[in-house]
Amino acid sequence: MLKVTVFEQLKRAMKEKDTLSKGVLTLLKSSLDLTEKEKGSALTEEEEVAIVNREIKQTNQALEGAEKAQRDDLIEQEKAKLVLLKSFLPKQLSEEEVVALLTEAGVVKGMNMGDAMKIAKPLLAGKTDGSTMSKVVKSLI
């Protein structure tokens, strides 16, 4: 379970006095705990991956802001956060693998974007990021 892994790494980061990892892992653990408490039961693997993806998206936005502001110190920090967060995701599919899966699932040229995404989202949840998924779907339809 992802929550246990995050907690173990958090304990290690605290012992090693790794403030960056400690901060990221604390944030991730809090998100997992809060969502689990709101749901009232244990989270599924898909729900845990969705939470990690949400944190990655927020970190990407912070990275973009740091790049616009030309803050090199923040850029390095956000990149390090991304590496740590991405380590909790399952292996990500390449664009070629995504194309093959979507073609096999029935996404064809001339299809409505909404219909294609209804097929793609459940199929690729946690296996690729949203921008790659959208880009491949657009190229197929």
Rank of each mutant, 00 (worst) to 15 (best):
L140W: 08
V99E: 15
N53I: 08
R71S: 07
L10S: 04
I56E: 01
V6Q: 04
E95V: 10
S30R: 09
A42R: 13
S21H: 06
E48R: 09
Q9C: 12
K91C: 04
K15P: 03
L28P: 02
A105E: 07
S31V: 15
L63E: 02
E96S: 14
T19N: 13
A100P: 15
M133Y: 08
A62M: 15
V136W: 04
V49G: 03
R54V: 11
K127P: 06
M113P: 09
L123T: 09
V99R: 13
E78A: 13
V52P: 00
G110Q: 07
T103D: 10
K37T: 15
L10F: 07
D18T: 00
K86R: 06
R71A: 14
Q58P: 05
T132R: 08
L28Q: 02
S87E: 04
K86E: 14
R12V: 14
K121C: 05
V24H: 02
E104F: 09
K135G: 04
V52H: 03
E47V: 02
G126I: 01
S21E: 08
N112Q: 13
E76P: 04
K135F: 06
V136A: 03
Q92F: 02
S30E: 08
L140V: 06
T19Y: 10
M111N: 00
Q9F: 14
K68S: 08
